[in-house]
């Protein structure tokens, strides 16, 4: 059995600008693959190539066993796609949107009605069938978009930052729906900003400036790229403290995170107590919270180091 997605030496140029260059990876069937990167790193370009929306200028990619450059129409029949922005018709109702996109996939009549019934059931949208999509809150709009992408039972689901701007509860429900599909055999390719979302992925790839800078399971990446301990630090004298710690022996990296910053160190050269003491020298009120490395740390390490796949 072939991989769900196989990408080899993929590149896309817009004039002189290389949006994506020399990207190689595979996604196995039934896997959730997370695609991470800053804005403009080439995530959306990759996903648009894989969906047959954009032709690659170098390399090749197969999706569900089909070459995206040679048979984009075949690819389109087998995938579901949810774009970054809410992109259903705001003036149509939930059912009317599903009716239209179902028709676009070639369903009609009773078969289409059955599918619509099933999908609104699955996504819990039955009560909202006849509401105009523009009247729904962002979380529900995302769910309608998901229902729409799942309507034709695609083998592969491409989700381009599906939960951006959605509240945490809706995000959890959304991801639960996606995981249910994966249990039924679907493959998911997802781009995201949220590192906690990426933790759920079987494997993640990290894009930096159009290149795939890191690839592996979350555990592997943390092990390989950010070994050792990691602390969250909060302090009123953040800038000063950050500079001091960066110069301390045994500190591997310091990068801002939320209201405070993260510090990673080599446990062999610097233990927790020493670090805490060093902090208090500068700001006696500094708060330290021990923890393990996160994908966020991995990401910062990749961006800082150029990364190794």
């Amino acid at each position: 059995m072939t991989d769900a997605i196989a990408v080899e030496g993929l590149g896309r140029r817009f004039g002189a600008f290389h949006a994506v260059r020399d990207v190689t990876f595979t996604v196995a069937r039934g896997e959730i693959f997370g695609y991470l990167g800053a804005n403009g790193a080439g995530k959306s370009t990759t996903i648009r190539i894989l969906c047959g929306l954009l032709a690659p200028t170098a390399g090749r990619a197969t999706v569900a066993g089909l070459d995206v450059a040679a048979d984009p129409e075949g690819v389109k029949r087998r995938i579901g796609y949810m774009s970054q922005r809410f992109s259903l018709y705001p003036d149509l109702t939930v059912a009317e949107n599903l009716d239209f996109f179902g028709g676009a996939y070639g369903f009609s009549g009773r078969a289409l009605r059955r599918r619509i019934d099933a999908i609104v059931e699955e996504t819990g949208l039955r009560a909202l069938r006849d509401s105009a999509t523009q009247s729904l809150p962002a979380g529900l709009q995302q769910r309608v978009a998901l229902a729409n992408a799942l309507l034709h039972d695609p083998e592969l689901l491409f989700l381009d930052e599906p939960t951006a701007g959605v509240d945490p509860a809706s995000r959890r429900e959304f991801l639960a729906l996606v995981r249910r599909r994966v249990r039924r055999g679907a493959t998911v390719f997802l781009t995201t900003h949220y590192m906690d979302e990426a933790e759920y992925c079987g494997r993640v790839g990290m894009m930096v400036d159009g290149r795939l800078a890191a690839l592996g399971t979350p555990a592997e990446l943390k092990q390989r790229l950010v070994p050792g301990d990691a602390w969250s630090v909060r302090s009123a004298r953040r800038a000063e403290l950050q500079a001091a710690l960066a110069a301390t022996d045994g500190v591997r990296a310091v990068h801002p995170h939320g209201a405070g910053f993260r510090v990673r160190c080599d446990p062999a050269r610097l233990d927790g107590a020493t670090l805490a003491a060093r902090c208090r020298e500068i700001d006696p009120a500094a708060e330290l919270e021990p923890g393990t490395a996160t994908l966020d740390d991995v990401f910062h390490a990749v961006v800082a180091g150029g990364g190794v796949a």
């Binding site: 992109s87 259903l88 705001p90 996939y105």
Partner: peptide, 14 residues
């Protein structure tokens, strides 16, 4: 502008 065009173009619709 709405982004629906892209959504339509990933369907097999010609």
């Amino acid at each position: 502008e709405l982004g629906t065009l892209e959504q339509v173009m990933v369907t097999p619709l010609r």
